[in-house]
């Protein structure tokens, strides 16, 4: 009987400690500390155990990896330094894309297609930005504020969380105000302005790389020196 080779156990990246998942002693720390242990059969220790027994497909077919918030609290206390979160992400990445639950993969697809996770058309984006900026300029101290977009040679690139141009327009202004007060020479972009990268959650490295690549492109084309990490 030969061990299968291409298993989660063998390829999930290790934490910086470099410790193999086999080191797990099933002590229960992770399960005892995870707030959703027992919900819908979720139990981090069980997941690790199944990985050690090469029961990958069962995990891939289950919704367990999608219940995990990947918060890493389990790992934080794990006395053996097991890579539980990387295991979860590895499982997520092996799920057929059309079986990824909820909006995660759909957002990734939209982002790849349209430049943002919600598929907001360019003109709508420009309108919202302009509208919110106008309102802000009515406040004392910000009278001369004009939102910079695609400004070449700006000092700082400011990407946006899609929810700010969706349901939470009112939260767009906070950074603008700070930049304005700090006299920061910043810019946003009209295309590919999305700051969040759900490829991280869906375990989709390919998409993740493309989306990160867009930021690199912005910085190069607009000759921007500094980046403010979106999240």
């Amino acid at each position: 009987m030969n061990e299968p080779t291409d298993t989660i156990k063998s390829h999930a990246p290790l934490r910086p400690s470099g410790i193999k998942p086999e080191t797990c002693m099933a002590c229960g720390t992770c399960s005892a500390g995870c707030p959703i242990t027992g919900m819908e059969g979720f139990d981090p220790r069980k997941i690790v155990r199944m990985v050690l027994e090469n029961r990958d497909q069962e995990l891939i077919d289950s919704k367990l990896p999608w219940l995990c918030t990947m918060c890493g609290k389990c790992e934080h206390a794990c006395p053996m330094g097991i890579n539980i979160i990387n295991i979860i992400r590895d499982i997520r990445g092996q799920v057929d894309r059309d079986k990824v639950p909820g909006q995660i993969h759909k957002g990734v697809e939209l982002c790849l297609e349209t430049g943002n996770n919600i598929g907001l058309p360019g003109e709508d984006f420009t309108f919202i930005i302009g509208d919110v900026a106008e309102e802000m300029a009515e406040e004392e101290g910000f009278e001369d504020f004009v939102p910079p977009i695609d400004k070449k040679g700006a000092s700082l690139l400011h990407t946006l969380h899609n929810k700010l141009v969706n349901t939470q327009n009112e939260d767009l202004v906070h950074w603008w105000k700070i930049f304005h007060a700090a006299k920061e020479d910043f810019t946003m972009t009209s295309e590919n302005w999305e700051g969040v990268n759900w490829g991280l959650f869906s375990g989709d490295d390919e998409a993740m790389k493309i989306i990160v690549g867009r930021i690199v492109d912005h910085m190069d084309t607009l000759r921007i020196e500094h980046l403010m990490y979106p999240e």
């Binding site: 995990c68 639950p101 959650f201």
Partner: peptide, 17 residues
């Protein structure tokens, strides 16, 4: 503690969890 919405779970239908 995580808020409960990490790892993209805000985008999943498992609101109860």
């Amino acid at each position: 503690y995580c808020c409960g919405g990490g790892g993209g779970t805000m985008l999943t239908p498992y609101k109860e969890v």
